[in-house]
């Protein structure tokens, strides 16, 4: 069972801050939908509006046939929500938390064990441990179990991988993929752009605006301009040294250990010469420039820069 989510011209203001500026988007049934954006871009606000923890100033949200304002009670029954901040009871054990959430949704751990088996089995050996004593990754798995225990049709995960180590992050996404196969609609937000490529479709948000709404492949395909990767002997002060490098170069940003440079209307030879001439007097050696295929992060940074 899964539902679609339709968001139409959604506006939310907090006093003077416009948190969401006329956002419209659709999430299809059974889709793994990613909400990508930096902190403060409006991801959490959007999720809280869907679950009616906040009320919008304007616009509509429909989860299946339910309206978020009128039928929020129905929506809460079919939605599993995992807040960004760990919100389970620290002083209750893993098992007690799970039983409690199962019971208040009128079900039991036993009855729905099969739904959460994949996630829960990983923390089951620690079921007597207090939730507050779990590691970050285990906390997230427990929170996911609790959000799934009532067989939701829509699963909303607010930054589930923030503050979780790289291995646990990978495991967590694998779990989400498995979860999706059971037919549930999943909306997940993350500030990590590399996680975008794991979603079916992503929405890129910034300052309450929707910058892109596409499949990860299309976002990469739509990338205009050329992308170059630069490395030199002195990567520490490279960004400062590249300041004012000259015409044709649009953007310079760090990408892991390297630097990515975007340009338009300029050939490799010319670019290569410009940069080498510019950097060598500043003491850089082994200057290597090569053309690279854009990854989704490059596209996002480009899109965010345009706005």
């Amino acid at each position: 069972m899964s539902v679609r989510v339709e968001i139409n011209k959604l506006v939310k203001n907090f006093e003077k801050v416009e948190a969401l500026k006329e956002i419209s988007l659709k999430v299809e049934e059974g889709e793994l939908f990613g909400l990508i954006g930096p902190d403060g871009s409006g991801k959490t606000t959007l999720f809280r509006l869907i679950t009616n923890l906040l009320v919008q100033n304007n616009g509509t949200i429909k989860v299946g046939d339910y309206d978020s304002r009128k039928d929020f009670k129905e929506i809460r029954k079919i939605t599993g929500y995992m807040p960004g901040r760990f919100s389970l009871y620290h002083d209750l054990s893993v098992e007690e938390n799970l039983n409690f959430y199962a019971h208040i949704f009128n079900t039991t751990l036993k009855e729905n064990y099969h739904l959460i088996k994949d996630v829960y089995s990983q923390i089951e050996p620690f079921k007597k441990r207090k939730a507050g004593d779990l590691s970050g990754g285990m906390k997230q798995k427990l929170a996911l179990s609790c959000a799934l225990i009532h067989k939701p049709e829509l699963l909303i995960l607010d930054e589930p991988t923030t503050g979780v180590d790289a291995v646990s992050r990978k495991e967590f996404w694998e779990l989400l993929k498995k979860m999706q196969k059971t037919g549930i609609t999943i909306m997940v937000s993350t500030p990590y752009m590399d996680e975008a490529s794991l979603c079916d479709r992503v929405a890129l948000m910034q300052n309450g605006n929707l910058l892109a709404l596409e499949t990860p492949e299309n976002i990469v395909n739509q990338y205009s301009g050329d992308l170059w990767q630069l490395s030199t002997s002195n990567m520490i002060k490279i960004i400062v040294d590249l300041e004012g490098v000259g015409n044709g170069i649009k953007n310079i940003f760090r990408f892991g250990e390297k630097v990515h440079i975007t340009s338009s209307g300029i050939e490799f030879e010319e670019l290569n010469k410009t940069i080498i001439d510019f950097l060598e007097p500043k003491g850089h050696e082994n200057i290597i420039i090569e053309k690279v295929e854009p990854q989704i992060e490059d596209c996002f940074l480009d899109l965010m820069d345009e706005n």
């Binding site: 679950t51 923890l53 009670k73 809460r76 029954k77 939605t79 929500y81 807040p83 901040r85 760990f86 919100s87 389970l88 009871y89 620290h90 959430y101 208040i104 949704f105 609790c146």
Partner: peptide, 13 residues
């Protein structure tokens, strides 16, 4: 203060 209310509030309690 601890934030547990957010999880409670989205339940049908």
């Amino acid at each position: 203060e601890i934030g547990t209310i957010e999880q409670i509030n989205v339940t049908p309690i």
